[in-house]
Design a protein around this nucleic acid. Structure first.
Length: 263
DNA sequence: TGTCAGCCTTTTCATAGATA
DNA sequence: TATCTATGAAAAGGCTGACA
């Protein structure tokens, strides 16, 4: 069992190294030094009992951020010209990247369920009634808990948008074989992984679900910062009032942070 | 703020020789 | 013969500063 756990940590470390090499274009020599620096930080935190696990066992980027506040880490970081916080920052970005990939795959799963609902004429007629019964449901995926999306809510959102991309109704895609409508995808403006920060309200509601053409949907998940930022500006203007009516308060800045836009 | 080359120091490992 | 110790080479770690 111990060996399996070690293998998992080694896998994450190897994936992180591969991500640095392929996604960030960092040289192997530097990657080696970064991994060594992370190990040094890990030892410091272990020695002063701020940490009892390995850094690569941690999947919460906020916890990694807190390590940068440790006095000893700050001291060696200053001496080492930020060579300890730089790799930690990279690891934080890597963890967010992993979360984003999970968010995308959950979106894909949701959209397949939405299509199944919309292709059933009887079910389609009753979606608006059914959607009233809903509470956020946590589901377990790998080591992290995620909130299951309600496909009926998402189907409603697409119907309310008249199957148009909400960025521009001119974004025509193709007619879906299953639904017979212009193909658009459901996207949660406030990502569902943020439900944990909205304990009083359910963010899986029509007001938070946007119909997007596949191009805009991919762009919002993986576009350049300025492109995502532009999309978010428009969508936030469009939906903020509806969200407030549902008791969901979100500033544009906070929304951008959820998409890792540094502004 | 991040990257990276380069230099210095420390650690690890292999090998040979000394000793019990 | 087995074990310990000294030594040197290689690898890894730590740090600096230039540059983008």
């Amino acid at each position: 069992m111990k060996k399996i756990e070690n293998l998992k940590n080694a896998d994450i470390e190897a994936d992180f190294a591969k991500w640095l090499l392929l996604n960030r274009g960092i040289k192997e020599v530097t990657i080696k030094k970064y991994l060594g620096a992370i190990r040094t930080v890990e030892n410091i935190l272990n020695n002063n009992e701020h940490l009892t696990t390995k850094i690569f066992e941690i999947s919460d980027p906020e916890l990694i951020k807190s390590f940068k506040n440790n006095k000893e880490v700050q001291e060696i970081d200053k001496r080492g010209n930020r060579m300890y916080t730089v790799p930690l920052n990279h690891y934080i970005k890597f963890l967010y990247y992993l979360k984003e990939i999970n968010e995308e795959s959950l979106d894909d799963q949701l959209n397949r369920e939405v299509e199944d609902i919309l292709m059933n004429n009887e079910l389609r007629k009753t979606t608006l009634k059914m959607s009233k019964i809903s509470t956020p449901t946590e589901m377990f995926v790998t080591k992290t808990n995620y909130y299951k999306r309600n496909p009926i809510k998402a189907a409603n959102a697409l119907i309310l948008a008249n199957f148009n991309c909400e960025i521009s109704s001119e974004h025509k895609t193709f007619i879906s074989r299953k639904t017979g409508e212009n193909f658009v995808e459901a996207h949660h403006l406030i990502p569902m992984n943020q439900q944990k920060n909205y304990l009083e309200v359910n963010i899986d509601v029509e007001e938070n679900i946007i119909a997007l053409c596949p191009n805009c949907h991919r762009m919002i998940h993986g576009g350049k910062e300025f492109e995502v930022s532009t999309l978010l500006n428009d969508l936030w203007q469009m939906r903020n009032e509806g969200l407030i009516n549902k008791g969901i308060n979100i500033s544009l800045d906070k929304l951008k942070k959820m998409y890792f836009i540094a502004e």
